[in-house]
Write a protein that binds this DNA or RNA. Structure first.
Length: 257
DNA sequence: ATGGTAGAAGATCTA
């Protein structure tokens, strides 16, 4: 089973790239982030025509997540812990396939820059995610938390660590919260297969970041033990960053036997 | 110390 995640930075702007990439790589499940549209505006028919089921949790202008699946899915769009949270950043699916089920979440974790309120929201969101993930692990299922975590886990995950020291993506409390999540029993899929210090998934649009390879690794797939046991391959589709009108993120995907 | 780019919305915010 091939499971991918991609922050597309507007699904409508990226539709051609998305369809081409799906035809090329044939993922079974795709987690999207920053679709930047309401559910009614999502290009559902185009994706269904490739043979996928579509579940969206959209929002006007900002955020928005989706799950696309070749197999039947049942979805939940609420991350427990704050009923007043209006931001569309989470959707979770139970995927029913030959030989069982796999639970997959598409996560758009808050960026956290822009002021103390935003950073507090990020950390609170991470704590809600940790508590929910702790519950999900008790199910002992194949579970994949996939998405844009807006976390640079370690210095080897950024070309120029010094430039990010005061950034919400790399601050010590952010990294500590991510480590706490991993410590529940998750495997960071990319780190299970490589020690590379060049496994970036995001390059800023500005200042020639792509040209200079000033990248960061912030898009992750976290695997429960039952999923990690089946991990055979991790691929970052880096070439998509070189296309015309790219997203600032590229897809990352895993294969589970 | 700032600007660089992109997207959606709408004359600014988020990233």
């Amino acid at each position: 089973m091939r499971i991918a995640t991609w922050n597309v930075n507007s699904v409508r702007q990226r539709l051609e790239h998305l369809l081409d990439w799906m035809k090329e790589t044939q993922p079974d499940v795709v987690c999207l982030q920053e679709i930047k549209c309401v559910d009614e505006a999502f290009p559902r028919a185009e994706i269904e025509s490739l043979g996928y089921n579509v579940a969206t949790h959209g929002q006007k202008t900002f955020n928005g997540v989706a799950i696309l699946s070749k197999y039947p899915i049942e979805c939940e769009t609420r991350l427990p812990g704050d009923l007043a949270d209006e931001q569309s950043r989470y959707i979770e699916a139970v995927v029913s396939h030959d030989g069982g089920i796999t639970r997959v979440a598409s996560i758009y974790l808050p960026n956290g820059n822009g002021g103390p309120e935003k950073y507090a929201y990020k950390l609170a969101w991470m704590e809600r995610l940790r508590l929910h993930a702790q519950e999900l692990l008790k199910l002992e299922e194949r579970l994949v938390l996939a998405g844009d975590f807006n976390v640079i886990p370690e210095p080897r995950d950024v070309k120029s660590p010094g430039a990010w020291l005061n950034d919400a993506l790399f601050l010590p409390p952010t990294r500590a919260a991510f480590r706490e999540l991993l410590a529940l029993g998750f495997t960071d899929a990319l780190r299970a297969v490589t020690d590379s210090n060049d496994a970036y998934t995001f390059w800023d649009y500005t200042a020639g970041a792509w040209r200079r390879n000033e990248g960061i690794r912030i898009d992750h797939l976290l695997l429960s033990p039952q999923a990690a046991d089946r991990l055979t391959n991790v691929t970052i589709d880096r070439h998509l960053r070189a296309l015309e009108k790219p997203s600032d993120h590229v897809p990352i995907r895993v294969d589970l036997a």
